Simulated assay, not measured.
Amino acid sequence: MTHEVREFHTRFRPRATRGLGLKAGPRRTHQGSGGGSVTHRACGFAMSRSIGFMTRLGAALACVACAPVMAATWQDAGFHAFDTTVRSDAGVVRRGQVLVRRFGNAPSLVDLGLPAGVRVAGLALTGNDILFTPDTAFASGGIVATPRDVVRHGASGVSMFLRGSDLGLPANVRIDALALAGTDVLLSVDVAARIGATAIGPADILRWNGTSVSVLHASHSLGLSPGTNLIALERFADGSLLMGFDTAGTVGGVAFKPGDILEYIPASGRWSMARGSSRFGVTCDPCVLVAFAASGNPDVVFRSSMERYED
């Protein structure tokens, strides 16, 4: 009698399992006789069972046991905005719209309701709402927002989240990268400027704690070359940072192009390529990713079937 064993497979391998010999197995179907044995991969580890009813039951139970660990990652998502109209598998993404890739779901679009000609310059997530900065001033929903302001977009429409004047940003400065660190706001600006006595540059990462602005990471301490402009930023709970730039360059031995997303680990000072600009599932010639936000572990966001990544 021949029994079939089907594998339960995931393309995701958490950072915590690296170096432990754990790896998601390939998709295969094993055939065998009732008295034989088979080694297969299920839920990211290798296991052996006798073929037959217990084989299929053992594999199923093993994957059920893995489910609570993996379930929390299935909601992770990436939010992307581009400098021009692009085509994607979710449809045409226009200026003022955000492409959303959510683990386990079809890609979708979020329209921020911006007037024609206004695009997104910075993105961040807070709960179910999107925070963004516009590249030009606009009026909508009873508010007037400038490029140094942060706007909240939610189910009830748009509202002002943070005014650049409260941060002490000069009127000619534009916020072009945005993230959250708990209740603090992380941001970067497009030109060199001063906030009070503090000089800031276009690749510095600033922190607003609700009362004052400080330089969290100066561009020179990150190893970035002069003239580099930070245009996309995200911070995860483990402290790792995702960054994108509007120019090509090299940092920490990693070469990058405009719109690539790099990962930086402050604790070790290590840089790595998280996602190349050619792998966002969009068609355009040319276009650049200008804003990005994500939720969850960066390994899940970039190394999962959501982004069509293969180990």
Score class of each variant (00 low, 15 high):
Thr85Pro: 02
Thr85His: 03
Ala90Ser: 06
Val93Ile: 15
Val93Gly: 06
Arg94Gly: 04
Gln97Trp: 01
Val100Trp: 06
Val100Ile: 12
Arg101Asp: 14
Phe103Ala: 15
Phe103Asp: 14
Pro107His: 12
Ser108Asn: 09
Val110Glu: 11
Val110Pro: 00
Val110Cys: 05
Asp111Met: 02
Leu112Arg: 02
Leu114Glu: 03
Pro115Met: 07
Pro115Tyr: 03
Pro115Arg: 06
Ala116Tyr: 06
Ala116Phe: 03
Gly117Asn: 05
Arg119Pro: 00
Ala121Gly: 14
Gly122Tyr: 04
Gly122Ala: 14
Leu125Thr: 06
Gly127Ile: 09
Asn128His: 07
Asp135Glu: 13
Thr136Cys: 00
Thr136Phe: 08
Phe138Leu: 09
Ala139Tyr: 01
Ser140Gln: 14
Ser140Leu: 15
Gly141Ala: 14
Gly142Pro: 11
Ala145Arg: 10
Arg148Cys: 03
Asp149Gln: 09
Asp149Arg: 13
Gly154Cys: 02
Ala155Lys: 08
Ser156Thr: 14
Ser156Phe: 03
Ser156Asp: 12
Val158Met: 15
Met160Cys: 04
Leu162Ser: 07
Ser165Thr: 15
Asp166Trp: 02
Leu167Gln: 10
Leu167Pro: 00
Pro170Val: 06
Val173Lys: 07
Val173Met: 05
Val173Phe: 09
Arg174Ser: 15
Arg174Tyr: 10
Arg174Trp: 10
Asp176Gln: 08
Ala177Cys: 03
Leu180Glu: 02
Gly182Pro: 06
Asp184Leu: 01
Asp184Phe: 04
Val185Asn: 05
Leu186Thr: 07
Leu186Val: 11
Val189His: 04
Val189Trp: 01
Asp190Phe: 06
Asp190Ser: 13
Val191Gly: 00
Val191Thr: 14
Ala192Glu: 13
Ala193Pro: 00
Gly196Arg: 05
Ala197Tyr: 09
Ala197Arg: 11
Thr198Pro: 00
Ile200Pro: 01
Asp204Ser: 02
Asp204Met: 07
Leu206His: 05
Arg207Ser: 09
Arg207Phe: 07
Gly210Asp: 10
Thr211Lys: 06
Thr211Pro: 01
Ser212Gly: 13
Ser214Lys: 08
